[in-house]
Design a protein around this nucleic acid. Structure first.
Length: 326
DNA sequence: AAAAAAGACAACCGCCAATAT
DNA sequence: AATATTGGCGGTTGTCTTTTT
């Protein structure tokens, strides 16, 4: 026999998340960390399947998410990375700090595609539309994921092209991967990552070499709160995201109240790269979170019920999570 | 002002590799 | 070793908002 099912799918709620559900999930993750999504709905008191909880957290509630429209720079990176990787959104997202694969995928489909078409570039092949048409007539199967055309490259980053990683070769590569051992395929992945990163290195330096792949999963013992009130201007850096998502649904409005930190400040020099988690939860965010969690439920456990400066470091007990609950 | 169309994005679905039993 | 589940991914759909007619 295998494991137990993720959820029975009977009586589970679907559709947009409510503010109340968000609160429950946030409260639970903050208290217990991320672990075993199957158990999360039950333990958090949610009528959702674990998968839905995971998606909600990773795509929307995670504190390290950068909200709002993609910057011009990010957009260019997406285009370049898409030219190399194709629709491998999670790979692309791993190069853009604070962005999710879903967000990038949506942005690609709603904005970038149109922009490229307007510029006369085929968003699939990254070649000029006229060339694509000609090629399509001759070689219909080779039109997908051709390397960037000159026209596009002039407007994008100077990404070197390695034929090995041109998207049209991806299928072959995937086939090769399936025929090789796990070990060798992981090496291939590492090599691929290195090669993709190399041409982008200068660009990534600007982003403080921060990749979402490197964002540690937030475990209870990793949730650290700054000991002193933030001296950085975080009180004014939290609004860019809220304005961009102000009127969509309940949960939007609800989360605007959280004053989620703007991760543009990753460019700041004062970031401790070895301890990024400390910077992810600034005072404003924690204060808002505290209000949010406790505002309407007096009986609810007060996760952060003391002044923030009384929490030099909130270190939660991992073992109580890992073993006490199960 | 109302209805329809288009746009934007959150959430769901189904597939698959990895992994637990 | 076989089997079932998890978690991650990409594609697609659903829902709400905005714009156009």
């Amino acid at each position: 026999m295998g494991r137990q099912p993720c959820c029975d799918k009977v009586g589970l709620k679907k559709g947009p998340w409510t503010a109340e559900e968000d609160k429950k999930l946030i409260n639970f993750i903050l208290t217990n960390g991320q672990c075993c999504w199957r158990a999360v709905p039950k333990l958090a008191g949610l009528l959702r399947c674990g998968k839905s909880c995971r998606l909600r957290w990773t795509n929307y509630l995670r504190p390290d998410l950068k909200r709002g429209l993609l910057s011009e720079y990010e957009e260019k990176m997406v285009i370049d990375l898409h030219a190399q990787l194709g629709n491998r959104w999670s790979k692309i997202a791993s190069h853009l700090p604070g962005r999710t694969d879903n967000e990038i995928k949506n942005h690609w489909n709603t904005h970038i595609k149109k922009k490229l078409k307007k510029m006369g570039i085929d968003p699939v092949t990254h070649k000029s539309l006229s060339n694509t048409t000609e090629q399509t007539q001759g070689q219909p199967d080779q039109q997908h994921h051709q390397p960037l055309q000159k026209q596009h490259q002039q407007q994008s980053f100077p990404v070197e092209k390695d034929p090995k990683f041109e998207p049209q070769n991806y299928q072959n590569k995937e086939q090769e991967k399936s025929q090789t051992s796990i070990k060798s395929s992981s090496i291939t992945d590492a090599m691929e990552e290195e090669l993709i990163m190399t041409p982008l290195f200068d660009s990534m330096e600007l982003m403080n070499e921060f990749c979402t792949d490197e964002v540690p999963i937030i475990e209870p013992n990793e949730i650290l709160v700054p000991s002193a009130p933030s001296t950085s201007p975080t009180t004014t850096t939290t609004t860019s995201s809220s304005t961009s998502s102000s009127s969509y649904s309940n949960s939007y409005n609800h989360f605007d109240d959280l004053l989620l930190p703007d991760f543009d400040h990753f460019n700041d020099d004062n970031i401790d790269n070895n301890n990024r988690s400390m910077t992810l939860w600034d005072d404003d965010f924690m204060r808002s979170l505290n209000l949010l969690i406790n505002d309407d439920d007096g009986d609810r456990k007060q996760v952060f019920d003391a002044p923030l400066n009384q929490y030099p470091k909130v270190i939660m007990d991992t073992e109580s999570w890992a073993f006490g609950l199960f």
